[in-house]
Amino acid sequence: MFDQILQFLLTGITVGSTYALVGLGFAIIYNASDVVNFSQGEFVMIGAMSAVALTAGDTGLPLWVAAIAAVLITMLVGMALQRFAIAPARGASVVTTIIITIGASIFLRGIALLVWGKDLFPLPSFSGDEPIQIGNATILPQSLWVMGGAALLVFGAQYFFNHTTLGKAILACSCNKTAAHLVGINVSIMLLVAYGLSAALGAMAGILVAPITFTSYDTGVMLGLKGFSAAILGGMGNPMGAVAGGLLLGLIESLAAGLISSGYKDAIGFIILLLVLFFRPSGLFGKASVDRV
């Protein structure tokens, strides 16, 4: 029994790390502009699919080159989304902007479907597929890549927002756009940077997890929803909350799948999300807002 639980926990942390990264992407754009970007899942898909496409065939690039290129491509897509879909709607309400992001996600998925079709694609593992024994549980080397990569990215993002002027300037844009203008911050560039960063995080999540879960044109839908749940669970706009929310969601799903039924794992994850929203609408780690006029 204990071995089984250990196995579920390892799986849960792996999946949860992916959710955490997607959730972090949600939090970054939310923090910069109060917008929930429902194309976040599509960033994950574009990252993974581009990496697959770039490594494929006889002329394929080495995996690490393809991964870097795929992240850059996704960043460009994210910035283009901001520049050509979000920015022209400047002045529109937040709800309108959110609906634009939903439209954009359908558009991006459609393009992916046209380019790559409906097949499920694998990406080679970074360092082999020989399972590693931990007690009586096993873990794939790729899972370690997912966990390690996620941890690194999370700490990187944390450092960026708490200790760099650029990071703080992005936060300033969301807490008070007019004041951000008035201290000389170029708000449109900051939003572009925020979308680029979110897209990069999404792409990296997609590339890290693709060797385990495979990828297809529509993997972004579920991952986007899970990442959104993670961000809500942790408290929207709290990046570390989103990470904790993602890990928690991954663990809950994995335990639910193992101990109850794998058919219900998504349902149980969402039920817990609903419960949190009922009893703690600001999320598990959401802080009460401090505002004084």
């Binding site: 002027t165 703080k168 300033a172 807490c175 004041a179 951000a180 008035l182 201290v183 000389g184 401090v290």
Partner: peptide
Amino acid sequence: CHIPEGRQVFAPLSVEDNLLLGSF
């Protein structure tokens, strides 16, 4: 440099960070 009506400080950020952003 413009000191807006109603102060418009960056409420969730620290005093130190507000000043830092002032020097952007």
